[in-house]
Amino acid sequence: MVASAWAALWLREGGLTFHLTELLVMYGLGGMLAWPLAVFLARFATLGRPAETRFAAYLLCLSLGTIAVTAMLFALDYRVFYARWHADTGTRTWLYQFAFTSLVAFYQFLVLGVRLYLPVGGAALLAVSLWLASAQPRQQR
C-alpha cells in the first residue's frame, strides 16, 4: 500500500507534497493492521469452498478491510488535530463533535484517499487475492 500511495502521488504530483512521509506511514499502517483481520475473515468465510469463492472473499475482505482501517487512522488523525477546538471530553457536545469529525474524515478519505490505491494497489490486490485463494487447500466435507 505504501508503494501504491507513493506511485499515485508521484504520477499525479511528481511526489511534491508537504506530508509525503506521514501519508506513506498512514497507508502502510492501514495495510499492515488490516491484513491479519481481513485474511482471517476471508479464510473463515470460505472454509470448504471452491477457489473462485475464496478469491472473491479475499478480494472483498482485503479491499474493504484496508480501506476501513486506513480511513479509521485518518479519522483519528483528524480527531487529534481538531481536539483543541472541541468541548470537554465526555460531554454530549463532545460526543457529537467526535462523531461528526470522524464521519467527515472517513468521507473525505473515501473521496480523496482511495484514489491513491490506484494503479498499483488494484493490481497488487488482484495478485495477492489470487495467490491466497490458490494457496488455501479446499477441505473435504
Rank of each mutant, 00 (worst) to 15 (best):
M1T: 15
M1N: 13
M1A: 14
V2N: 05
V2C: 00
V2A: 09
S4G: 02
S4E: 01
A5Q: 13
W6A: 11
W6N: 14
A7V: 09
A8H: 07
W10G: 05
W10D: 12
R12M: 07
G14Q: 00
G14R: 01
T17M: 06
H19W: 15
H19C: 07
H19I: 10
L20G: 10
T21W: 08
T21E: 14
E22D: 13
E22H: 10
E22W: 08
L24Q: 08
L24T: 06
M26P: 08
M26T: 06
Y27K: 09
Y27R: 05
G28M: 11
L29N: 07
G31S: 08
G31C: 04
M32E: 12
M32A: 15
M32T: 11
L33I: 06
W35H: 00
P36C: 03
P36R: 00
P36K: 04
P36V: 01
A38N: 11
V39S: 06
L41N: 05
A42H: 10
F44L: 14
A45H: 05
A45M: 09
G48Y: 00
P50F: 02
A51K: 03
E52V: 03
E52L: 14
T53C: 08
F55P: 04
F55L: 06
A56Q: 04
A56W: 02
A57H: 00
A57Q: 03
A57N: 08
Y58C: 05
Y58L: 05
L60Q: 11
L60D: 12
L62F: 01
L62E: 05
L64I: 08
L64V: 12
G65I: 03
G65A: 04
T66V: 05
T66H: 09
V69D: 05
A71Y: 10
M72F: 03
L76T: 10
D77T: 15
Y82T: 08
A83K: 01
A83L: 13
H86I: 03
A87K: 01
D88C: 13
D88V: 15
D88W: 07
G90E: 01
T91P: 04
R92P: 05
R92H: 15
T93S: 12
T93D: 07
T93W: 07
Y96H: 01
Y96P: 07
Q97R: 06
F100E: 02
S102M: 11
S102V: 15
L103E: 10
V104S: 08
Q108D: 15
G113T: 01
G113R: 02
V114F: 02
R115G: 12
L116Q: 12
Y117P: 04
Y117M: 02
Y117D: 10
P119T: 11
G121S: 11
G121E: 01
A123K: 07
L126H: 08
A127K: 02
S129Q: 02
L130P: 04
W131P: 08
W131A: 14
L132C: 13
A133D: 13
A133E: 02
A133W: 02
A135T: 14
A135C: 10
Q136H: 12
P137R: 13
P137C: 03
R138Q: 12
Q139P: 02
Q139N: 02
Q140A: 12
Q140D: 13
R141A: 09
